[in-house]
């Protein structure tokens, strides 16, 4: 496993270096993985990397780039818009010469067009936003403050909002709400893996059998 950087496009036409993990031996089958989003990124990172190890063993190269503004990225999250993430993933896929792309949960929203796509347990944008807003109202209530979803959405769309530690700008929220999954991807369901999704876990967990099953499903799809 090797950390490396790739040129991520910026809106002014220049690029900045972003970070990625890779297993790259210049093999014929090359998979770009778009990670899960926000909280789920942490809970699924271990599974994601374990799947990459297994793909490496099966003769498949893979690369896991950071979405700009997340993980090791030095860009501020609050200036990002969904289209920036789509552009970034498309640039990363081209840079690495990907033959296929895999989205994990909310990452499926950003699998670049023009590459054959697999979607593992895709999550829809409104559901992701709703759950983060709900977490915030629960935390506020626990702290003795009353916040409503309507009030928070108004705040989010006018000034941006901090949701479970992620500072999202108003344009991100506005556009993300209606951001749709592409419909031509091959879906890998949680039933294929067996057991319950690790994104549900309150604490990041791991499962060797789920990593085995997901890697096997990917290898079949890429065969």
């Amino acid at each position: 496993m090797t950390p490396l950087t790739w040129p991520c496009p910026l809106r002014d036409g220049t690029t900045t270096d972003e970070y990625a993990l890779s297993f790259d031996h210049a093999r014929a089958r090359r998979l770009l993985i778009v990670p899960a989003l926000f909280d789920e990124a942490n809970r699924l990172r271990r599974l994601t990397v374990e799947v990459m190890r297994r793909l490496d063993g099966a003769g498949i190269d893979s690369v896991l780039p950071d979405l700009p503004g997340t993980n090791e990225s030095l860009q501020p999250l609050e200036i990002q818009e969904p289209q920036d993430w789509s552009n970034a993933m498309a640039a990363a896929a081209s840079h690495f010469g990907a033959t296929h792309v895999l989205g994990i949960r909310g990452g499926c929203l950003f699998t670049p067009a023009g590459f054959a796509a697999l979607h593992y347990a895709p999550a829809k944008a409104p559901g992701i936003l709703r759950q983060m807003l709900r977490a915030r109202t629960l935390a506020a209530r626990e702290a003795g403050r009353e916040e409503t979803r309507e009030g928070l959405m108004h705040l989010a769309l006018t000034q941006g909002i901090e949701l479970v530690g992620h500072r999202l700008g108003p344009e991100f929220v506005r556009r993300f709400e209606t951001f749709a999954l592409r419909t031509d991807a091959v879906e890998i369901t949680q039933e294929t893996l067996g057991g319950s999704g690790l994104w549900l876990r309150a604490e990041p967990g791991e499962s060797a059998s789920q990593a085995d099953a997901l890697a096997a499903a990917i290898a079949r799809a890429l065969a």
Partner: peptide, 29 residues
């Protein structure tokens, strides 16, 4: 381990698996 994000996830799962809709103002301590 049941922090606000975990509880939010739990409520979403409840909605999906029990086929119900939970309004935020129904959620109390």
């Amino acid at each position: 381990e049941l922090d606000s994000m975990a509880v939010a996830g739990l409520l979403t799962e409840l909605e999906d698996r029990l086929d119900i809709v939970i309004d935020d103002d129904e959620i109390d301590g």
